[in-house]
Amino acid sequence: MAGRFVTFEGGEGVGKSTQIRRLAERLRDLAHDVVLTREPGGSPRAERLRETLLSGGAKRFGTFAETTLIASARADHVDRVIRPALQRGAIVLCDRYVDSTRAYQGSLGGLDKASIRSLERVATAGAWPDLTVILDAPVERSLERVANRAQGAAGDRFESEGRDFHGRLRAAFVEIAREEPERCVLVDAEGPEPVVAGRVWDVVSRRLGLTETKSRAV
């Protein structure tokens, strides 16, 4: 695969969607071919499963069944979106990927590591991130952002969980970053959006060897 694959991870309300869009814009300004995608979803078939997963429709069948459904959506996403983009040399930016499954269904849902690793091997089929940016912020700040984003509407299954859930979720992502420092980088998500974007760019440009001198093709 000739392209580069960067995933963004973190708990609810840490600013992943904002920062991944900012990074995509910066890379496109430098004339890079960028594919911005997300999980659950990312491909037409996987998007159809997204609502079921985020609404909690799969939760009643148990964590293993839910994780299997996530893996099925991921396999289609990889096959139809991620792999073709990498093969043509694009930079793929994905909002959530395998580490979210490890955190939500593994650390918090109680599914054993062996089952999660087996499912992710099948689903990813070798499409593994070159870099994973894990955004980190205090739970109070994250919950405040979630509330502001919802503007009084009910959050999805995970956003609606209590403080203890979000605290354990943050700890799970921090542990993932510590376990795989060669792939994962923990980035402080506190502060104004442009400041956080600068931190993200420092990490991504350094790890992927990118510069801001690339000129657009004419």
Rank of each mutant, 00 (worst) to 15 (best):
A177C: 05
V81C: 11
E161V: 03
V92H: 04
D29Y: 12
R28V: 10
G152A: 12
L23V: 00
L131C: 02
F158E: 00
G10Y: 00
R74N: 02
G3D: 11
P138W: 09
L54A: 04
V6F: 02
D130M: 12
S72N: 07
V204N: 06
R178V: 13
G191M: 14
D29C: 14
G106M: 03
E120P: 08
A177Q: 02
E140Q: 11
R28A: 07
P194H: 00
R28D: 07
V195E: 15
V35G: 07
G162L: 05
P129D: 00
R21P: 04
G198S: 08
L23D: 01
S118K: 10
V203G: 06
G191Y: 14
V78G: 02
E9Y: 09
A71I: 06
R117Y: 12
W128F: 13
L53A: 01
N148F: 09
R50W: 03
L93N: 09
I176M: 14
I20L: 04
K214F: 12
K59R: 13
T211Y: 07
A150S: 14
G57F: 00
A197I: 03
D164W: 11
S72P: 06
R60N: 14
L208N: 03
E12Y: 01
T213E: 15
E193P: 11
P192D: 06
A189R: 00
A103D: 05
S43E: 10
L210E: 08
Q19L: 12
Y104L: 00
V146N: 06
R28S: 09
G155D: 07
T101D: 00
I91M: 04
G3F: 03
G41Y: 02
I91E: 02
F5D: 00
P129C: 09
D136C: 11
V133D: 01
P84W: 04
G57E: 07
P40A: 11
G198L: 03
T63N: 08
V92I: 03
P138C: 09
A172Q: 10
H32E: 02
R157K: 12
P181W: 13
R168N: 10
L49K: 01
L131D: 03
L36T: 05
L54V: 05
R149C: 08
T7C: 03
E182H: 15
Y97D: 07
T67W: 02
G56N: 10
K113A: 15
L186M: 11
P194E: 05
E190T: 14
L131Q: 03
F8H: 06
